[in-house]
Design a binder for these strands. Structure first.
Length: 471
RNA sequence: GCUCCCUUCGUCUAGCGGUUAGGACUCCGCCCUCUCACGGCGGCAACAGGGGUUCGAGUCCCCUAGGGAGUACCA
């Protein structure tokens, strides 16, 4: 039997971290077993579903490269099918019309709550078929009244539910539209889904669904319920914990592989391994190795992982990835170094693409002022002569290369009998405006011959002014 | 309230009856070093509590506590 999994998001919200991990696990499971991974848009809630959210889902999945093997299924396109089953169940006495009003249901719930027992529909319309004036009925599924439903969950193990605890759920609203639990069952059956991997929050729905599979005369798929992802503080993941929308992570400069690598380790592990290529994930992933407990989202570790990926991504690829960020920051790329050079200089000192682009600002944009603290410490009169000599030396360089620049700095320092650091830091502040940058030869090379000359002149003038002021 | 799920360093996790309880992120030292990083080395830090079972329990069972989910004409 070919494995078929599905990811079934509801476009009532954007694609977020937790959904993505669910999608990833489903995708990995299918890939691991050489099966198919499908996408289904659960848009039966027409009030809250939006085309923008549908777009956000496709967009996110495409960015992450979590490709589906067949065209996506839209539940709204399948209303005829759902109606067909509803009619059939009504005819077979597997479902019934319920004429209870919302007020009546509310009252029942309150009474049950007050009595301290279980809360749920009591089935009062099971044997009351006559219509009631002014009430559009809902259709309820006749859940078995006794016996137990056993869920052999791939991650939880055997879980039993008493049918007595389950009530007759609504499968069609009074306006005729079908509801979630019902659609899921029909779709999973029709799509021939073999393995349902979904969030923990659905574990309680599973016994009802299994009962409906039976009513349909279909074999239920295997189930695997994933633990939740919590925010860093252990509370439910929300906006408070930073980005929720998966696209925000792209905007911040995370690489899709890094995000996926981070997510795969939330609730799953393969010994002590932290870094997984997509091939390795597919090869090693097993639903049986999935944890049973919820895990907290740790932004620091995601950042660390992202850097691990930045470090090994080929230069040309990475340059292509940072380009949009450089542009977004308004840099004139043509008027500065090749992004490939920036990428190689910064791959070991940036955790995100955005950070990388921001750090490289001085390569493309002239600064007005030297950073006060750095200037005070490094742009001092003592360094005036060496800096002048270096400026001259640099201006005369035949070739503007890291090697030539390195030699120029070293020889100038030696000629003035000072350490590399004594000259390097002032030079760094002069050409970048601040005290932190890649190795000085690389930095100067990045800044370019012209800007280096201008900025050195500016620094020298600043030091001269400072010297004059102190006299 | 009722039903179901969960519980190893701050966080992610390894562990599958006998371990000095391992790794990763974070943090702190040291080394490397022209700054920042990277890298290397070292350090801080955990079996929720209580009962059993067993020669022996982080590992098996029960209870308690604490988290979470569901209990919608949401998905």
């Amino acid at each position: 039997m070919t494995v078929r999994t599905r990811f079934a998001p509801s476009p009532t919200g954007v694609l977020h971290l937790g959904s993505v991990r669910t999608a990833l696990f489903s995708w990995l499971y299918a890939r691991h077993h050489g099966g198919q991974f499908l996408l289904r848009i659960e848009d039966t809630d027409r009030e809250r579903s939006t085309p923008e959210n549908v777009e956000a889902i496709f967009d996110g999945m495409a960015w992450l490269n979590l490709t589906a093997d067949e065209e996506p299924i839209y539940q709204t396109a399948r209303f005829d099918r759902y109606r067909e089953v509803t009619e059939q169940w009504l005819a077979e006495d597997k479902a019934y019309h319920c004429y209870c009003t919302r007020a009546e249901l509310e009252e029942m719930r309150e009474r049950q709550m007050a009595e301290g027992g279980q809360v749920g529909y009591d089935g009062r319309c099971r044997d009351r078929h006559e219509p009631r004036e002014g009430v559009d009925p809902v259709v309820r599924f006749k859940n078995p009244v006794d016996g137990v439903v056993v869920v052999n969950d791939a991650v939880r193990g055997r879980v039993e539910f008493d049918n007595g605890q389950l009530d007759d759920l609504i499968i069609a609203r009074s306006d005729g539209t079908p509801t979630y639990n019902f659609c899921v069952v029909i779709d999973d059956a029709d799509m021939q889904i073999t393995h349902v991997i979904r969030g923990d929050d659905h574990l309680n729905n599973t016994p009802r669904q299994i009962n409906m599979f039976a009513a349909l005369g279909a074999t239920p798929p295997s189930f695997g319920h994933l633990p939740m992802i919590l925010g860093a503080d252990g509370a439910k993941l929300s906006k408070r914990h930073g980005a929720v929308d998966i696209r925000d992570y792209r905007d911040e400069g995370f690489l899709p592989e890094a995000l996926l690598n981070y997510l795969v380790r939330l609730g799953w592990s393969h010994g002590d391994q932290e870094l997984f290529s997509m091939e390795e994930m597919i090869e090693y992933f097993d639903i049986a190795d999935v944890n049973q407990s919820a895990s907290s989202f740790n932004p620091e570790k995601l950042r660390w992982l992202n850097q691990q990926y930045i470090k090994v991504t080929p230069t040309a690829t990475l340059a292509g990835e940072v380009r949009p960020y450089l542009e977004e920051l308004g840099y004139d790329i043509g008027g500065g170094p090749d992004p490939e050079a920036v990428v190689d200089a910064y791959r070991e000192r940036a955790e995100t693409l955005r950070e990388m682009a921001e750090s490289a600002r001085y390569c493309y944009v002239d600064f007005e002022e030297f950073e006060a603290k750095a200037a005070k410490k490094h742009l001092r009169p003592v360094i005036l002569e060496p800096l002048r000599a270096l400026a001259e030396r640099l201006a005369d360089l035949d070739e503007w290369s890291v090697l030539e620049i390195e030699a120029a700095v070293k020889e100038t320092a030696a000629a003035h009998e000072i350490n590399m650091g004594k000259l390097g830091q002032p030079l760094r502040v002069a050409v970048t405006g601040a005290g932190v940058s890649p190795p000085i030869d690389v930095t100067v090379c990045l800044v370019g011959r012209e800007r280096t000359a201008q900025r050195l002149a500016k620094a020298i003038a600043a030091i001269e002014a400072r010297a004059a002021a102190s006299h």
